[in-house]
Amino acid sequence: MKIVVLVKQVPDTWGDRRLDTSTGWLDRGASDAIIDEIGERAIEIALRAKDADKSTEVVVVTMGPASAADVLKKGLAMGADSGVHVVDRALAGADLGWTATVLAAAIGTGWDLVVTGNESTDGRGGVLAAMLAERLGVPHLTSLDAVDISADRVSGVRATEYGTIDAHAALPAVISVTERSAEPRFPGFKGILAAKKKPVTTVGITDLGVAAPAARSVVVSAAERPARQAGRLVTDDGTAAQQLVDYLAAERLI
């Protein structure tokens, strides 16, 4: 079995996250760049399948600038077998549709399962897995809290507002997992050393045979979040309830 895992380099959520107001793009220099934690959980799902069947091949794939190679190193240190890095200046500012198209080309054929996180901490689109499955022409299961992988199908549990759903799909398929799915393992010293010898293929859109799109969604304008205003203090002089109601009505909150 061959499992492809999508990972992403994102700004550290403990640091400052800013948009470049001149482009509307993420300012990647505003904080440290790290592997998205949901991506680590996706890797763990694949590695558990590899633990159960040593013949399983795990390939980590990322799309991003040259620095994104670091997230592949983390996946390889955890236990993945190889990596693919899609890097091209033409991908700067790519939207979800363009991203799904390029990643589908990078994934190619000959795989059994694609695993990704349900949403990244920087974009939070939450639709990449479904868009990717459409382009690859396979079924998808999204936002799984638990995953079971067998030789010919994948199944899992998906939470809903009414309870849970047990879902399954025949392979090949695309799945996305949530932060409840699996606690990622910590790379050991042996794994870190082994990662240095594992192959990583770097490709651009020309290598993938993908032409730059004629049109895609763009950011028209961006502005910094306005400074937070001081709240209104209500002194209870016997009319506090009415003042509160009047305020909520004026703000159209009731």
Rank of each mutant, 00 (worst) to 15 (best):
M1D: 12
I3N: 01
V4F: 08
L6C: 12
Q9D: 01
D12G: 08
D12M: 04
R18P: 01
L19H: 09
D20G: 00
S22M: 06
D27F: 04
D27Q: 02
R28T: 13
A30G: 03
A33F: 04
I35R: 00
E40C: 10
R41A: 06
R41M: 10
R41K: 10
R41H: 07
I43H: 01
E44C: 04
E44N: 08
A46L: 05
L47G: 05
A49S: 08
D51L: 10
A52N: 10
D53N: 12
E57V: 13
E57R: 10
V60R: 08
V61Q: 02
M63V: 03
P65A: 15
P65H: 02
A68H: 00
A68R: 01
D70A: 15
V71Q: 09
K74S: 10
L76E: 05
G79P: 09
D81T: 02
D81L: 04
S82F: 06
S82W: 04
G83H: 04
G83E: 04
V84D: 07
V84C: 05
H85E: 07
V86L: 01
D88F: 01
D88S: 00
R89K: 15
R89A: 14
L91E: 08
A92F: 05
A94K: 07
A94V: 00
G97C: 10
T99E: 03
T101L: 06
G110D: 02
D112W: 08
L113H: 04
V114D: 01
T116G: 12
T116E: 11
N118S: 14
N118E: 14
S120T: 14
T121K: 12
R124V: 13
V127P: 14
V127D: 15
A130E: 13
L132K: 09
L132I: 12
L136D: 04
P139V: 06
L141S: 09
D145L: 09
I149M: 03
S150C: 08
D152N: 11
R153I: 00
V154P: 00
R158V: 03
E161Y: 08
G163K: 07
I165G: 11
I165D: 15
D166L: 12
H168W: 12
A169D: 00
A169Q: 03
L171K: 06
L171C: 00
A173G: 01
A173F: 06
A173V: 02
V177T: 07
V177A: 07
T178M: 06
R180S: 13
P184C: 04
P184F: 05
F189A: 15
K190P: 12
G191W: 00
A194Q: 06
K196E: 07
K197V: 01
T201W: 06
T202L: 11
T202N: 11
D207W: 09
L208V: 08
G209P: 03
A211F: 02
A212K: 15
R216S: 13
V218T: 14
V220A: 15
V220D: 14
A222N: 08
P226A: 13
P226T: 05
A227C: 04
Q229E: 15
T235L: 13
T239C: 06
T239M: 11
Q242K: 14
Q243H: 12
L244F: 03
V245E: 09
A250W: 05
